[in-house]
Write a protein that binds this DNA or RNA. Sequence first.
DNA 1: GGCTAAGCGAGACGGTACGTCCCGTCTTAGG
DNA 2: CCTAAGACGGGACGTACCGTCTCGCTTAGCC
Lengths: 197, 197, 197, 197
Amino acid sequence: MSAPSPKRPPGRPRSDAARQAILEAADALLAEVGFAGLTMEGIAARAGVGKATVYRWWPSKGAVAMEAFLAGLTPRIAYPCTDSAVDDILTQMLRLAEAYRGAGGRVVCELIALGQADPEALAVFLDGYLLPRREAAKDVLRRGVAAGQIRPDANLDAMVDALYAPIFLRILLRHQPLDDDFIRHIASLVFSGLVPR
Amino acid sequence: MSAPSPKRPPGRPRSDAARQAILEAADALLAEVGFAGLTMEGIAARAGVGKATVYRWWPSKGAVAMEAFLAGLTPRIAYPCTDSAVDDILTQMLRLAEAYRGAGGRVVCELIALGQADPEALAVFLDGYLLPRREAAKDVLRRGVAAGQIRPDANLDAMVDALYAPIFLRILLRHQPLDDDFIRHIASLVFSGLVPR
Amino acid sequence: MSAPSPKRPPGRPRSDAARQAILEAADALLAEVGFAGLTMEGIAARAGVGKATVYRWWPSKGAVAMEAFLAGLTPRIAYPCTDSAVDDILTQMLRLAEAYRGAGGRVVCELIALGQADPEALAVFLDGYLLPRREAAKDVLRRGVAAGQIRPDANLDAMVDALYAPIFLRILLRHQPLDDDFIRHIASLVFSGLVPR
Amino acid sequence: MSAPSPKRPPGRPRSDAARQAILEAADALLAEVGFAGLTMEGIAARAGVGKATVYRWWPSKGAVAMEAFLAGLTPRIAYPCTDSAVDDILTQMLRLAEAYRGAGGRVVCELIALGQADPEALAVFLDGYLLPRREAAKDVLRRGVAAGQIRPDANLDAMVDALYAPIFLRILLRHQPLDDDFIRHIASLVFSGLVPR
DNA sequence: GGCTAAGCGAGACGGTACGTCCCGTCTTAGG
DNA sequence: CCTAAGACGGGACGTACCGTCTCGCTTAGCC
């Protein structure tokens, strides 16, 4: 019966309460002071936790920040599901832009910046945030294809990039505002070439 | 009273040798230890210069790094000028992608990352690199409009974003390869909606 | 109900093996890294023992160190017993000085130093080492008083201090050598005032 | 004229104000929390000084403590100068005992303890505190010899040790109280053997 | 030629956060 | 109920940089 395979390690088990407290503290601090202002010391103090405990779970403030952000974000920007896939995409793009105009956008930018210096952080960001969203977007597009609203020979990957990259670029570079008009322009640009004649 | 030669301030003039030494030191250190490992102290020491001298010329390590990098970049990705503005854009996009697949791409990514923590650095990046290129692109597009190859009601800013943002996103996030096929897809996506019927 | 053997407490009995392992580990570490470098964590790890086990037996690293040291010390500097108590004291003082010039002296110094920061360690040192020796010295002096070699109104406690304190001071402060001449000087100084006229 | 020998080093000169503030802070903390409770961090904070500044001047808390103690102590326990050298010594011994019963005694003990682990600290303690006092004591004794109050063949070094070592031993070991009676006993013990017959 | 003013190198200054170490307590599973 | 293991909250360690400051020394134009 007693399967020895999983093998609980000896010693006091790690406290998930501490883990949660750290993630929540990091999330709150990210929103308040941004990634640059984030410190391991601050996180530990806010979480009521020893610094060593933070280092026991994550190797760097980047790792904590990434995980905290993803944990705090996951259930936020969903796709609607109406008859028109094109409208659904547009609606979600507007929602996303709305979210990115606030603190969320700044954090996303900082996490992408972090990823430039830390490939592991980038991988976590992709797997934990970006790629799932891309898949969701592609599902909606596939629905549109099935419904005859989008040409069946469309390259969905390129399409997702064409739709969403401009949003990311504008929050990253701030060269022009990310307003709803811009979103609509982009969407119409992309879709006008891909709707069946 | 004495309003002589226009503007020469009194005192010892700034040493351009120091300025050059700092930029070279910063450039060398960037290559050796990367952005994250760069410090004002290190730059000053390497350049054989007092820290105060560095601060007298630039407000932050971001500003030094940006200027050092842009000075060393001088990237010549010009637009061709054929009869077809659409073809010209595509040709240049392919050249740009080619450049960005190499070391130049990493540099641009790091500059953008730096800009997330340092607004002034971002401004320098925009003014010194990005905005001039956008203008060049828009010039080509305007040529296309004039030649009747692009619809006159097209929003050129959105169009530039739609064309180039996907390139930036792929070098920043590396979620999919930045190959020529992808470039062609994006271009055709964008232009197919904007060529006159 | 079952009231068997009088006093055996329930549960697993304490492991004397652990106790021994701890003392040996402490002794070894003391020799390797000295008092300052000694840590409870290090002792426990070296002994292959949980930290809690160390704390269950001793309240502080000072207590462990003291016991480990006294256990390893077993110093046998006994008093001779001739007709002359004064000579017996002098003989023993010379032996003691001899012992203290070597490693034993360093040990005693370190124990005294340890006692300055740890009252409990000091108490152990006094009860386990110093006070028994004082009593032995006083016994010899009492013998001298009984034999008419020492004035009966002599304050024995002060006398012991006067005789031995200079030895301790010279090993503690190293301001001058602890040679036999010095010992003889001290002894003659003290006794010359206390022998009956 | 311009003698190049002393050669002021380049850079901003060290701030003696900071140095003084650190010593005063350390002295105050030593009296309040003792050597064990002393921390570099606490000293820096109390002195309103960066930790690095403390480390720039002294390598360890022991070094700061030693210097702070000596600086704060220097002008305290002087010898009177009456006709009787023997009385002068006794008077000063009583004063010293008085001082050592308070916080000063604890600090001296801790510094001696420190010296057991740190030879440099011990040297500073000897040169800066103990040896000068020994010389002063020997001067008084020489005065006594000159005045015919002390036998000219007395070994002054041994005599000083015989007089003062018991005081140190009682504050170090606390095996018996350091009261005035004890001081008088010791003094009479030592002098009774050395006054000329 | 002397004066004034600013830039120069150097590096100490008051700070903040780092990542590590050890403290003494606790929480497990197992003997 | 003791044991080994080791995570926990806490706090000091010594280091590295930050951005500012205070020095003595140029290096210039102006009187």
